[in-house]
């Protein structure tokens, strides 16, 4: 992976963290759901790029995505 891609992912993750903090202080009706979705996007950024899961067999990629979809649906449904 090129240097700029890791750096680009890092910048995106920091920006998403700042957005999560801003959303949590806002009065948006769906703030909690948005925060969970942002966390899922950050999770994908770390697992697929920093951990290089993008290069792995489809089974591992599908397993991570399945976990994330299941986790976020359960959490959001309880909110």
């Amino acid at each position: 992976m090129k240097n700029s891609k890791f750096l680009g992912v890092w910048i995106a993750l920091i920006v998403l963290t700042v957005i999560s903090a801003l959303v949590s202080n806002s009065s948006l009706y769906y703030a909690s759901s948005i925060i969970i979705i942002l966390a899922v996007v950050k999770f994908i950024g770390i697992s697929f790029y920093f951990m290089e899961l993008k290069k792995a067999h489809i089974f591992w990629k599908a397993s991570v995505l399945f976990y994330l979809v299941l986790f976020s649906i359960i959490i959001i449904s309880f909110l």
Binding site: S20, A21, S24, A31, S32, I35, I36, L38, A39, K42, F43, I46, S47, F50, M51, F71, I75, L79
Partner: peptide, 22 residues
């Protein structure tokens, strides 16, 4: 070793929004 370290990041990414924000 790197995968273990990244796992700590992944777990924190789930803990932080739920415990501190929502």
């Amino acid at each position: 070793g790197a995968a273990f370290w990244h796992m700590c990041d992944l777990i924190w990414l789930l803990l932080f929004p739920i415990i501190y924000l929502i």
